[in-house]
Design a protein around this nucleic acid. Structure first.
Ligand SMILES: [Mn+2]
Ligand SMILES: [Mn+2]
Ligand SMILES: [Zn+2]
Ligand SMILES: [Zn+2]
Lengths: 160, 160
DNA sequence: ACAGATATCGAGACTCAATCTCAACACAAG
DNA sequence: CTTGTGTTGAGATTGAGTCTCGATATCTGT
């Protein structure tokens, strides 16, 4: 049986929601994918499999998957939201490359601890947090360095 | 002279852009505001002052202000983007209350240091970072606790 | 297995923030 | 004044995400 299928079915049942083929198909695809995927990717997969699922249903199912905790929604601030499986995985934060778009995951327990501490001081009850670091991955940093080697080019740094 | 006016004028000139009344009006309003404001707020201010500025111009000018570093764009992930002045201020992160929408600012040098360290280990060149903690402020935490005092209500925790 | 009650699906309309288009305008330089 | 170029605003456009509602699939009891 596919990863998380049991858990999602139980979560749906606990809310008196129905276990449908479309919902399980969306679950399967997110679980099969390794990275941070978007809606277009999912629609493309369903098209290939000759098992089309409407955008509305994909969005609705992803919302359920996120609420169930099996999937996480990632807002990069450019274009569509991305989704990644969280079933069997632990919390992590993201480094996003402005050059190639690669998303690098990392965790740091000390940072997490300090967040809790800061919130405790401010009497703030944490529900979730998002730490995104934007910059350039090793590969893109090297490229950038070589390009800027001759004439120092200060144009196009930010992106709106 | 209004805060940042000199700096913005110089930044515009350095890009061969013109110092116009509309641009300075947008700068003034963002500098005058104390909090994290959105486009609707700015339009309302201009309407009150009988000095209307079009949405297009507001967006375009904010983009320039962000690129110049005088203003920061804050994406909360719900509705419009927000903007806050950064002129004369230092970097900070945000706690966002899911109850009342309040935005609490905080800084923690140790967290910043650890971010640098993690990125160094991954050979990632930092450009910017965003740390947002979502949860409930002191006031809203108390309200929530009293409401849930009797029957434990597990509905409606997330939002989308 | 069957039937009724009800949740779900899909196509497309719709919302809304943000961007784009382009004609009228402003302004600096000659 | 005239020309060249940057700017503005009204409205059109884009695009992600949501909503509507008639048709359809799932569940529950018999
Ligand atoms: Mn991830
Ligand atoms: Mn702030
Ligand atoms: Zn890269
Ligand atoms: Zn609050």
């Amino acid at each position: 049986m596919r990863e998380g299928k049991q858990e999602f079915a139980e979560w749906l049942a606990s809310r008196k929601l129905r276990v449908t083929g479309e919902r399980m198909a969306v679950l399967d695809e997110v679980m099969r994918a390794n990275g941070h995927i978007d809606i277009d990717y999912l629609q493309e997969q369903f098209r290939k499999q000759k098992r089309p699922v409407s955008r509305a249903t994909i969005y609705r199912t992803l919302s359920h998957l996120v609420q169930s905790g099996l999937v996480q929604k990632v807002l990069t601030g450019e274009g569509q939201a991305r989704y990644e499986k969280m079933y069997g995985r632990q919390h992590h934060d993201h480094m996003i490359c402005l050059g190639c778009g690669e998303i690098i995951e990392f965790t740091n327990d000390e940072i997490e601890r300090l967040q809790d501490w800061v919130c405790h001081k401010k009497r703030f009850t944490i529900v979730t947090h998002t730490l995104q670091i934007k910059g350039f991955c090793e590969k893109c940093s090297a490229q950038k360095a070589s390009v800027e080697g001759g004439a120092t080019d200060h144009r196009r740094h930010g992106r709106n």
